[in-house]
């Protein structure tokens, strides 16, 4: 059985006063499970106070340039414009 759970995009509000920011994606069978999985996967170090999830195939994206619609491969499958977290200044070198 190769049934795959649909892909969800996850947005986390890091603390009060900030926007929800895209942090990544995950798979879940439904919206409720997606929120719960997001809590476990993306906030296990207390990174957030609020979570949004949305099915990736429900996102409508603008095209980065006008030629895009013709050439973007599998345009209906490649939907994301992910930003993840801001780059931390202290990416560890060791």
């Amino acid at each position: 059985m190769s049934a795959e759970w649909p892909l969800y995009e996850v947005f986390v509000r890091g603390k009060r006063g900030l926007n929800h920011v895209h942090v990544g994606s995950l798979h879940a069978a439904d919206d409720t499970m997606a929120v719960r999985n997001a809590r476990d996967v993306y906030t296990r170090r207390n990174e957030g106070v609020s979570i949004w999830v949305v099915r990736a195939d429900a996102i409508t994206a603008s095209s980065p340039d006008e030629k895009d619609p013709m050439f973007a491969p599998a345009g209906d499958k490649v939907y994301r414009h992910p930003t993840f977290y801001d780059v931390p200044a202290d990416v560890p070198h060791l």
């Binding site: 995950l26 879940a28 999985n37 476990d40 996967v41 296990r44």
Partner: peptide, 11 residues
Amino acid sequence: PDLEEDVALAN
């Protein structure tokens, strides 16, 4: 059963 559940059960 899936990676998400690995993480959840470990939590």
